[in-house]
Design a protein around this nucleic acid. Structure first.
Lengths: 216, 216
DNA sequence: TAGATTGTTAATCGATTAACAATC
DNA sequence: TAGATTGTTAATCGATTAACAATC
């Protein structure tokens, strides 16, 4: 019988918390712990225990009353739920400072993406290797995306080029864009964009800080 | 008479949207536009017009019925509200890939922070310059923070060192930490932490993408 | 068994959206 | 003036938190 359960939608907030649990559990595992309770997770993160239970439940995890959550089991559930098992292949466009940093980044908590190749329109950079990955010219982008069925495009070009390159990615078959530019992208409905917005993040820090400093 | 108005709290969501409006307005300004309506902003971002009006209002901005919002005026209001006028001075610890990229990053929408110096505990790196900024040894961190009254610390060290370095920053007088590691930091109550969490951001992209691919 | 912890339903809270009056 | 757009109050929606029963 086919599974006809409606996949209850999971909020973005939950999706963003799950990798945190995963990372902390991997630390606990290294310390030799096999099991963890929501109480402990909650006090570590300053979250509500019920929230954590619901988050893990929506990722398909389950605990045992009186015992807690089995760490390796729950990590597997999160990996599976977040799609980290079928490592998402990605291409990166724009091998400037930020792009190069990502090519060498090893902090991905669960190896959630694999960057296959990088592209740049600067002839100076084309052909060079950055952190072991070759930089190709932009003309090769559509072919490679199609040939290897790459689904994710990482956008680390200057803001002025962002929309144009995003359009090229979409035309070549990219289905999800990780946008690290300050530009808001316009894409067709069926394309997913996640905006990793440096200014947005700093705005929270700076204004909360200003608020705190004002009160002393 | 002293201003006794309670500063109504502004949600994180609003704080994160304001820089987006700012950036888009700066683009419109370059195109020669002086005024913009919420309707236009809303259709650009796919947000609700009322939400944008409320956001701008909480930043101290105001529009004129029938006309819209004056772009330079509103940009000033946002700059002022987010504390971008008194450029926040910052130090960066950890001059690996990500740290080096930030030292050379010029995409800060409103020059919201100014990185004064970078630190690293690798003797190989100390003394070298990255994007025009000298790398100092960790021993110099507390002195420099105190002498220059730096309030913001940027954390780009490996996860295993994150908590230790954060503690050192706090001890030296840092009041806000921009955390780019995958680790959840424990800090005293009066310290602000903003976690720029790569895995959290990717989790949203990957799982929405997986969901979309499943339905075809 | 007793009690810690999960699982689940209900209540609260806050953010978003809708409705409409004010105004240039 | 008429009508587009702001400003503001009320309604809705969804996420978080609280309460409590189930269970190992």
């Amino acid at each position: 019988m086919v599974n006809t359960e409606k996949p209850k939608p999971v909020s973005q907030a939950t999706l963003q918390r799950l990798p945190k649990y995963y990372h902390y559990m991997s630390q606990l595992l290294k310390q030799g712990r096999e099991v963890v309770s929501c109480t402990k997770l909650a006090s570590h993160f300053g979250f509500d225990p019920t929230q954590i239970r619901k988050d893990i439940e929506s990722a398909g995890g389950a605990g045992r009353p009186r015992i807690g959550f089995d760490i390796p089991k729950t990590m597997d559930d999160i990996r599976e739920f977040l799609g980290w098992n079928n490592a998402n292949q990605a291409v990166l466009v724009g091998s400037g400072n930020l792009g190069s940093a990502l090519l060498g980044y090893d902090g991905f908590a669960g190896r959630e993406i694999k960057i296959l190749a990088a592209f740049d329109n600067d002839p100076e950079k084309v052909g060079r290797k950055v952190h072991g990955k070759e930089i190709f010219s932009m003309e090769k982008l559509p072919g490679l995306i199609r040939r290897l069925h790459v689904h994710i495009g990482i956008l680390t070009v200057p803001g002025s080029a962002a929309q144009t390159i995003a359009d090229e990615m979409v035309a070549a078959g990219i289905r999800g864009i990780w946008n690290l530019t300050p530009v808001h992208l316009h894409v067709p409905e069926n394309i997913i964009v996640s905006h990793f917005d440096i200014s947005a993040n700093l705005a929270v820090l700076c204004s909360q800080l200003a608020e705190a400093l004002r009160h002393e």
